[in-house]
Computed example of a mutant assay.
Amino acid sequence: MAATGRDTSARSATADREIVISRVVHAPRELVFEAFTEVRHLSRWWGPEGFTTTTRAFEFRVGGAWDFVMHGPDGTDYQEWITWTELTPPERIAMLHGEARDDPNAFESVLTFEPDGTATRIEMRTVFPTKELRDEAVEKYQAIEGGKQTLGNLATYVAEIVRKGAKG
C-alpha cells in the first residue's frame, strides 16, 4: 500500500508539469510495443498528422538513442533526441526526450502498454522540468493534440498490419 501512496504523491507533485494521453489501439500488445521499438515501424507513423520523420541514428536499448528530425507540414524541421532509460517488453518504455543530448529542457516520458481484451491501452505520461516548459509545449507546439494525433497514427498503422496479417 505504501508504494501506491508514494506513486499518488509523486503524481500530484508533478500534475502541473505533466501531460497524460491514452488510447486504445486495436492490436495485440506485443505488436503495439514492437511499433515503438523498431525504426522501420517508427518512421511510418511517428509524429502528428502531416509530419514525417528522418532517422539519423537508432539504438533501442537502455542508454541507446534515437536521433531524428521531424519535418512539419509547413517545412519546419524539428531536431529531436530520445534516449531510452527503461525498457520492460512488452509493458513499459521510459525515455528522456529533447532537442539534443544533454538538452537542459528535455522531458521524461513513460509509455505503458496494457492488454484491453484483444486490444492494447497505451498511456503516454510526460513530465516536463517546469510548469512553464509544459505550458509552452501545450500552447506553442500543441503537445496535447499532437500527442493524440501521434497515437492515432500508431493505431492506424498497426491496424493495417493486423488487417494485412488476417488476409495473408
Rank of each mutant, 00 (worst) to 15 (best):
D135F: 02
V138T: 00
T54M: 09
I122F: 04
M124L: 09
A27H: 00
F68K: 02
R11V: 01
R11H: 04
F60K: 10
I19A: 03
A100Y: 14
E91D: 15
P48T: 03
R17V: 01
R121T: 08
A137E: 00
G75S: 11
R125D: 02
F128Y: 14
P104W: 11
E99M: 15
A159C: 00
P115R: 09
T4C: 08
F36P: 01
G146T: 01
A13F: 03
P104N: 13
A3R: 14
Y157S: 04
F107W: 10
W84R: 05
A137M: 06
V39F: 08
I93D: 02
V39K: 12
R134D: 05
I82G: 04
S12L: 13
E38V: 14
T156C: 05
F107S: 11
L151P: 08
R44W: 03
V39G: 08
T37V: 00
E145T: 12
M95Q: 13
E160N: 08
S9V: 11
T150E: 10
F128P: 07
D77L: 13
K140R: 15
A13H: 03
R163D: 05
M1F: 11
D77K: 15
E49L: 13
L133G: 08
G117K: 06
A3N: 13
E132Q: 10
I19V: 12
